[in-house]
Amino acid sequence: MIPVQVLYTASAQATGDGRDGHVSTSDGTLDLDLAVPKEMGGAGGAANPEQLFAAGYAACFHSALRVVGRRAKADVTGSVVEAQVGIGPNGTGGFGLTVTLVVDLPAVERAAAEELVAAAHQVCPYSNATRGNIDVALTVREAA
Rank of each mutant, 00 (worst) to 15 (best):
D33V: 03
V140T: 12
A43G: 15
K73I: 01
A74G: 13
G28C: 02
A129N: 08
Q84C: 01
E114Q: 06
A74D: 07
A120L: 11
T77H: 14
E82C: 04
A55D: 06
T139N: 08
A12L: 12
Y126Q: 08
D135H: 15
E39G: 09
L32M: 08
I87R: 13
V4R: 07
E142S: 10
D20Y: 01
P106M: 04
A120T: 07
S79K: 06
R141G: 03
G91V: 08
Q51K: 14
T92N: 00
S11N: 14
G94P: 00
V117C: 06
V103N: 05
H22N: 13
A119Q: 10
R110K: 11
A43Y: 10
T15D: 15
F61V: 00
P3H: 00
E115K: 13
T92V: 00
P49Y: 13
G18V: 00
L7T: 09
V68S: 05
V140R: 05
A43P: 10
M1E: 05
A129F: 10
E115C: 02
A54Q: 00
E50G: 09
S24N: 12
G28R: 03
P125K: 05
A64I: 10
A111R: 01
S127T: 11
T98Q: 03
I87G: 15
V140Q: 09
T15K: 15
A12K: 07
G69S: 13
I87E: 10
E82R: 08
F53A: 04
T15P: 01
L30N: 08
I2H: 11
G28A: 04
A118E: 13
H121G: 07
